[in-house]
Design a protein around this nucleic acid. Structure first.
Lengths: 339, 339
DNA sequence: CTGAAAGCGCTAACAT
DNA sequence: ATGTTAGCGCTTTCAG
């Protein structure tokens, strides 16, 4: 079987305890013993049994991350923000993916709790009874990243979903658009709800009637953007701009528009959301909402780490600012001079 | 503190042992006891301490995945292929990211070994002494996904890197191209080496001299494709086609070409590699090599699972076929009639 | 079908 | 600076 502390102890003549200490870099050992032991361990191919260590210590040096949709580069960028800081603080990142299934979210939460991770960062669904119960009772520090959960306050690192989508819509309206197609994101996540409300509110405030035909519900994937536009075009819906739940959807939308010989932005303007790294390389490059993904991850882990260090620390929501980025999928000038 | 088996035992009046069995679904318990215990556990919010369980059992129900570059959607697609099968077999996926740093690869390997995962799937660097030593001595089942490692045989699930890049190059040559820019991928990974060799070999076999100027080394990211083209254009290099290490690079390349008023494919043809899901939505849509990413993941986990089930099973390399996909970043007809 | 007892490999508390 | 002892919470014998 594998090499144990005992084996190293026998080989070096020290006690198990001393070996354990040496391997953990205890300063109170003589430099000599430490080196002897470490070298022997290395030579024998010792690997710590972290289950045993964990059992004794009661908590691990791992941060669990539960992400929502691995196919969206958005999360990869957020995770990058988490990784570096976590690593510097001596923590390891464990990644689990729900693909937005609440059952998995609940299951994975239990997994992480069961693994005694030091803390958990979650990209959660908005409403699920089981999950919410867990969030209300769990004692491991946790934060929601980029989303919030119904009925749970103080645990979210957010960006301004509502306001950003409001601003996007308003900017489109300012340019003369009145028939703005909105491609909605996946059900049951807070971003979808908040962004849709931002769109709706902007319409309302400008006295533009809500048209249910112009609101298309999707799963927020690139092919959904593509399909939505084709669907709208097939129904001969009239619209002069498209606001999208995210950049992925916008890419699909632009593709469909192009294939149907609409020029973007000259015939139809398209606005994304997220500002994925790739979006600047699209053709045309995407106008979008810059969500500070790296910062989101970084602040999330920093905050979480603070809570891990001090369990008494009160929880609080944090809201990050976004900004609109105007690139080539929208125009600089007025779109419609008059109706 | 947290609820333990002991607590449930006290509450229900059964022994710790019976509780443990009930919670694990042991068939030999009376249905009644099982239900009572499970319900009580649920009510008390019991979560198994997996460290303790693991310590006793010696092996976990987790598969460790060490991926190379989280910013490349390629891996997300491979992981999707792994996830479902793993889940069905009752295993959980743990994801760790090296960003191609060999030290991290070695570190993470040890982590997984230390965690007593059931098996490991790795997207490895090609050469690193420490890593290779680990691969030669480790007793946990493992496979390399989509890459191979110097000196380690029988542990790779591969796709035909060399041949595919050869074919791409040949197809370009067939159309009359003789000055084909090749944008090379990140150092020290087998894909880069194999694909570059495929390109070179095709040149050789067609009597086209290798021109070092036409070979640009990069990290294989989208911005590298962009920068490479700009660099080549600034140096007034002449070329009529670009073969890229991957689709990401190709996207960046196309962007740079367009910005410099070259039409793709009419002025310059561009070929990618990987066939990312997103590539069909690019404008122009990317001609590329279809790497069966989902299958790669699926076969990798299936094979690994087989080895987990039977440690005696001999290891063997597996090679998957790719196919060239011709879309709109290349032309159907001859590119250059004559010189 | 259920219970009692042993022990997985490590770390922490206490001794020397 | 190093050794001794106890025990983390669970699962696995082995009894009954």
């Amino acid at each position: 079987m594998s090499v144990l502390l005992k084996d190293i102890a026998e080989k070096t003549g020290f006690s198990i305890n001393t070996v354990s200490r040496a391997l953990r870099g205890d300063k109170k050992l003589s430099e000599n013993t430490r080196r002897t032991i470490c070298e022997t361990a290395e030579m024998m191919g010792y690997v710590r049994n972290s289950a045993a260590a964990l059992m004794r210590k009661g908590t691990s040096n791992e941060i669990g991350i539960i992400s929502g949709d691995s196919s969206n580069p958005f999360f990869a960028e957020v995770v990058r923000g988490i990784e570096e800081t976590a690593k510097q603080a001596g923590y390891r990142i464990l990644l689990l993916n729900t693909d937005e299934f609440p059952e998995r979210e609940a299951d994975y939460m239990k997994t992480f709790v069961s693994m005694k991770v030091a803390g958990i960062l979650i990209v959660p669904v908005f409403h699920d009874d089981v999950c919410q119960k867990i969030y209300r009772t769990i004692s491991v520090p946790y934060y929601f990243v980029g989303r919030h959960v119904e009925g749970i306050t103080g645990h979210s690192i957010l960006h301004s979903d509502f306001q950003s989508q409001y601003d996007v819509t308003q900017s489109l309206i300012n340019k003369g658009h009145r028939r703005i197609l909105y491609i909605v994101g996946p059900e049951n996540i807070s971003n979808t709800i908040d962004r849709l409300n931002g769109y709706l509110k902007a319409l309302d405030n400008n006295g533009i009637p809500r048209d249910p035909d112009l609101i298309i519900r999707t799963n927020g994937h690139i092919e959904d953007g593509f399909a939505s536009i084709n669907w709208a075009l097939n129904r001969s819906l009239s619209f002069t701009a498209v606001a999208c739940f995210n950049d992925l959807v916008a890419m699909g939308a632009i593709k469909a528009l192009s294939e149907n010989n609409y020029r973007v932005p000259d015939d139809i303007e398209v606005f994304g959301f997220d500002n994925l790294y790739i979006s600047q390389f699209m053709q045309p490059s995407l106008s979008t909402v810059d969500v500070p993904k790296f910062a989101l991850g970084k602040i999330a882990i920093e905050t979480l780490l603070r809570h891990i260090g001090n369990p008494q620390l009160p929880y609080d929501d944090i809201n990050l600012n976004t900004r609109l980025i105007f690139r080539k999928s929208t125009n600089d000038r007025l779109f419609l001079k008059e109706e």
